[in-house]
């Protein structure tokens, strides 16, 4: 026999009464991303193919840097919430916790890497 109460067995499988916060965040960030997506595609389209020094100078300018930073920060946090819905649909118990942790840690690592690169390109551009 299992030494577990029926309540404990059901815990975590139903509503936590807090899901609307995630849905609202995805709604708000999706509105921001509708504007950021075309802007980001234009920025990246102009950047690909530039020689190294010009590329660094390009991302040292305010608009390319701000649009890229905003797109990656807002996009990756939106990605965390989006993967969370997928994880909640397909994973249970410990696998769910591990998947959520991997998703959050990975996304913030991507954000940190991008922000570091953009900050350094701005500083290098100032040094010139």
């Amino acid at each position: 026999m299992r030494y577990i109460t029926p309540r404990k067995a059901a815990q975590g499988l139903g509503s936590a009464h807090s899901g609307t916060a995630d849905h609202w965040f995805i709604t708000v960030s999706s509105c921001a991303l509708v504007l950021l997506v075309p802007a980001f595609l234009l920025v990246i389209g102009n950047a690909i193919g530039l020689p190294h020094p010009e590329l660094v100078a390009y991302f040292g300018r305010p608009y390319p840097a701000l649009i890229t930073a905003l797109f990656i920060v807002v996009g990756m946090v939106h990605f965390i919430k989006g993967t969370r819905i997928m994880i909640d649909d397909y994973f249970q118990h410990t696998a769910r916790k591990v998947a959520i942790i991997v998703s959050v840690v990975f996304s913030w690592a991507v954000i940190a890497a991008a922000v570091f690169a953009l900050a350094k390109m701005t500083l290098v551009t100032f040094a010139i």
């Binding site: 990246i44 190294h52 590329l55 660094v56 991302f59 890229t68 990656i72 996009g75 990756m76 991507v110 890497a113 991008a114 570091f116 690169a117 953009l118 350094k120 390109m121 290098v124």
Partner: peptide, 12 residues
């Protein structure tokens, strides 16, 4: 996004 962020980090 991984490809582009790798590219940005490589640039610095």
């Amino acid at each position: 996004i991984l490809l582009l962020v790798w590219w940005l980090v490589a640039a610095v």
